[in-house]
Computed example of a mutant assay.
Amino acid sequence: MKRSHLRLHDRSTLLERVVSRLREAILRREFQPGERLVQEELAEAMGVSRMPVREALRQLEKEGLVTLEPHKGAIVTPVTSDDIEEIYYLRSVLEAIAVERSLPHLTDDDKRMLGQLVEEMEQAVKREDAEQFIAKNAEFHRLIRKGCRWRRAHMILEMLWHGFPPHTPGMLPGQMERSQAEHKEMLELIESGDAKRLSEVIRKHILRTGEAFKEHLAQDE
């Protein structure tokens, strides 16, 4: 099967782009669960060497999207509705706690940076620049929970952030706009020091995204 639509025309940050393109193709069911991903075919389709494809498949294995099997190579792992529900529910609970505990310890510089990130995300929305929005969104979420002193909470959240959660703005129609409106509300609560309300808003923000992602995959199927 021809995969010419996968071809990459911009070689900057090559590995990240290969990972992103393959991740999106898997989540959009362009590759079916159980399908074998052949490095040579993917490299040719993308117009890259085998090395970034090989590294990308290793990264996708860490994210749970492929399984690397001896003598078979990479096999697409099914992403189920239960997987999405589990990841987003756990994130919503733990991140809400982390943010509530973090807010009293955020500095004025942290708050200024959060304001700057919200502005940069606003510009990304206007330009329809999903990659920039994704990068700034990840920075925003990490910074907003920075002040939480629970290191295990940070470790678990980083694990839950691996894979598709950061990339939903590039996959769900209207997600950047909805998320940005919620980010602005979060910023107002940070500036007012309302940790309880901030915790509730971020919990709903994550759960809403999870539900939207489940609906999106169901439509693709």
Rank of each mutant, 00 (worst) to 15 (best):
R50V: 09
K62Q: 13
R127E: 15
T168V: 07
R101H: 14
E191Q: 13
T107S: 15
E85P: 02
L68A: 04
R112Q: 14
L27Q: 04
K214G: 10
E63V: 00
K204T: 13
A98K: 05
K184C: 04
H162K: 09
L57G: 08
A98I: 04
H9R: 15
R149Q: 13
T168D: 09
D109T: 15
K146G: 04
R178Y: 07
K72Q: 14
E95I: 02
V19K: 06
R29Y: 11
S192T: 10
R3Q: 12
D10E: 15
A98E: 07
Y89Q: 12
R91S: 09
E185Q: 15
E158L: 08
T13M: 13
A135W: 08
Q32E: 15
S102F: 08
L42W: 00
A195Q: 15
I84T: 05
R7C: 07
K72I: 12
T209S: 14
E44M: 05
P104R: 11
E55G: 04
E63S: 12
L217H: 01
E128M: 10
V48W: 05
R203F: 00
E44K: 02
D109W: 10
V18T: 14
T168L: 10
E30M: 01
W161T: 07
Q32L: 13
E200Y: 09
V76A: 03
V201F: 06
L143M: 01
K196Y: 07
L187W: 04
T168F: 07
R54Q: 14
V48A: 11
L37S: 00
R29D: 03
M1F: 08
D109K: 14
R208D: 15
L106C: 07
A153T: 13
E41A: 08
S102K: 05
H167R: 11
Q116V: 08
W161Y: 13
S102W: 11
Q32Y: 08
P78G: 09
L42C: 01
I75A: 05
E182V: 06
H162S: 05
M159Y: 09
A138D: 11
E211L: 12
M159K: 12
F31C: 06
K62C: 06
V118W: 00
S81T: 14
R54L: 07
R149M: 05
Q123K: 12
R21E: 12
E35G: 06
V118Y: 03
W161K: 11
P104W: 09
V66P: 06
V18H: 10
H9F: 14
E61I: 01
N137V: 00
L6N: 03
D10Y: 12
N137T: 12
L60Q: 07
M155D: 13
P104V: 05
I202F: 04
W150R: 12
H183T: 02
W150S: 11
H183A: 04
R112G: 14
D109F: 08
F133H: 05
G170P: 03
D129Y: 08
W150Q: 09
L207C: 10
F133N: 11
I206E: 01
G73S: 14
P70Q: 04
E69V: 12
